[in-house]
Design a protein around this nucleic acid. Structure first.
Lengths: 331, 331
DNA sequence: GTGAAAGCGCTAACAC
DNA sequence: GTGTTAGCGCTTTCAC
């Protein structure tokens, strides 16, 4: 059993209130008492109970962060950004991994509510109807990352997906590509069609004779396997715009398997700039999202809401084309 | 302000004690009261306060999990395994990301103590002297993953690193390699020298004329850059045994950069089997650790300690050689 | 079957 | 500057 504030008070010969004052750094404590309390704390290895403190203060100093799947390399950096920002505001993060299961996501939301966290961040792949209902009636400060709820009541931190799709495509057009394949993700998320919209816009704006074919992926490594089928019926050169890096990596793997050379025969562009993109062979050209900033901004937004500010509207972060070895001239 | 048990009691026309009985599923509640309480709970959208409950019960139903760096793809799967096991025992996990900073790791340990978690799991890369002191005097159920504390007081979940090093080497020897390069990690962790010991043992046991050179890496992608220097002075064929997959991926990238072909000229073996190993080009031959099981077993061990059992000794999980395209015959 | 009462460990308002 | 008191929301005897 850990020592309590009463134990410390008894040992220091003061009242619990005085110990509490020392704990909170109140100036209204005599030097003598201060010292005795400090000594007692050290001797008893006392640590104030966060549980009791939370009950009394009616806040826990804890934020909930729900991620779709921590095994997706897109998320860890968001977690990092959120954690750092939380630490700065004296809070900590309970990380919940929904493991691609929407039911589990809801279950975690319930759990966080019971735990009386101060706020919640949802970094989710796809938001189902069920989510929308649940989250619309959510009673706590709430921010989403990479998804936005209809109604505009819940602030969202997003990347400029449209611009990203456009920039990726522009890059390929400049390299002389005229046959583009877009491997999409399952069509649940708006951001995904935004990316595709950007692709289309760039093509239209170019005014050139450019073809675009959309094949469906799953948003993960396996989605890249779609490239296998494409390679089976198309002769190079052509270019693949994958909806994210995992898909691009999967596509590069499938092409490698078939002996199709990247970028000599086929160019590939990803989206996200996950850590390993730079270390693929060849390095993956991609649209970088500032994942760390997304986590940080989500927490900072919660902090503002906690401070009583009314936050509305989305935060849209700029993206950046990173050219590596997976794209080259069409020939 | 969320509704309290008193609110529910008032609305249902019963005492808080009765509401509590309903919450806990006690049979000693009349059908009428049961129904009225249930209705009141639904109407008020009541959720019992985990904070108050924890204070009263003197346990929080929460486990702390500290990982060295969540951005290292080795950890997410451990987190998954731990989370699933925790859910099964009705607990949840507070994930703490030490971000490679030992001070931060200690700070999190303090935090978890304050939060009165029921137990702690430390999945740490390197354990410093500071850790050892702190953890030896740790007052809560504690299990380490991939590191063990001297003294044998703290149960550890480990992979069979020695056997892994041996199996990787055996594989290369069978392919006819006689010049081996081991890229180590900084020599802080015992498991790392265990892996190297396995390499040496396999070489000695082979009785053949095999050379081994050890160059130091950093345990991450950059550590693989050591391969650049090696490639500068050695003529193929030779084989690289990296101390983990990230190092191997970094090495493959450096070799690709220099135009050295894997596996035609140089074979590469990793360790861990992170998700992307299978999707490198070529696929990375590696020693697979059962990361999910490590997380699961750590939690299950905590559960046993919580149940009053005295757990001692380490759990050593078997590893498995996974042959992919990055290794081939020496020629 | 149900309620009253005590108390988990802390903080904050109020006295002195 | 310090102590007393009340109470955060819940569970758990103990009566009845």
């Amino acid at each position: 059993m850990p020592a309590t504030i009463t134990d410390v008070a008894a040992r220091a010969g003061v009242s619990p209130a005085t110990v509490s004052r020392v704990l909170l750094g109140s100036p209204r404590v005599s030097p003598g008492a201060l010292e005795r309390v400090r000594a007692a704390i050290a001797e008893l290895d006392y640590r104030p109970s966060g549980v009791a403190r939370s009950l009394r203060r009616q806040r826990t100093g804890t934020l909930g962060l729900i991620v779709t799947n921590i095994m997706n390399p897109f998320y860890p950096e968001i977690v990092r950004g959120a954690e750092d920002a939380a630490q700065r505001m004296g809070s900590s993060i309970i990380l919940c991994n929904a493991a691609e299961d929407p039911e589990r996501e809801i279950a975690y939301l319930e759990l966080l509510l019971e735990r009386r966290v101060d706020g919640v961040i949802v970094a989710a792949g796809g938001l189902t109807k069920r989510h929308e209902e649940f989250l619309s009636a959510f009673s706590l400060p709430l921010v989403t990352i990479n998804a936005d709820l209809p109604g505009g009541q819940v602030p969202a931190v997003l990347s400029d997906d449209h611009e990203g799709g456009r920039a990726a495509t522009l890059h390929l057009l400049e390299l002389g590509h005229t046959r583009l394949i877009h491997i999409s993700s399952p069509a649940v998320r708006e951001s995904f069609s935004l990316r595709l919209d950007g692709v289309k816009e760039a093509i239209v704006a170019s005014g050139g004779d450019v073809s675009l074919e959309v094949v469906e992926g799953d948003g993960y490594l396996d989605g890249g396997e779609a490239a296998r089928e494409v390679a089976g019926r198309l002769r190079p050169p052509y270019a693949i715009v994958a909806h994210n890096d995992l898909t691009a990596v999967g596509a590069m793997h499938a092409l490698f398997d078939l002996g199709v050379r990247v970028p000599d025969q086929v160019s590939v562009v990803g989206f996200d700039d996950i850590a390993l993109a730079a270390h693929m062979n060849p390095g993956l050209t991609t649209i970088a999202q500032d994942k760390y900033a997304m986590g940080r901004l989500a927490v900072e937004t919660i902090a503002r809401m906690l401070a009583g500010e009314t936050v509305r509207g989305n935060l849209i972060l700029p993206v950046r084309l990173v050219v590596r070895g997976s794209t080259g001239p069409a020939r």
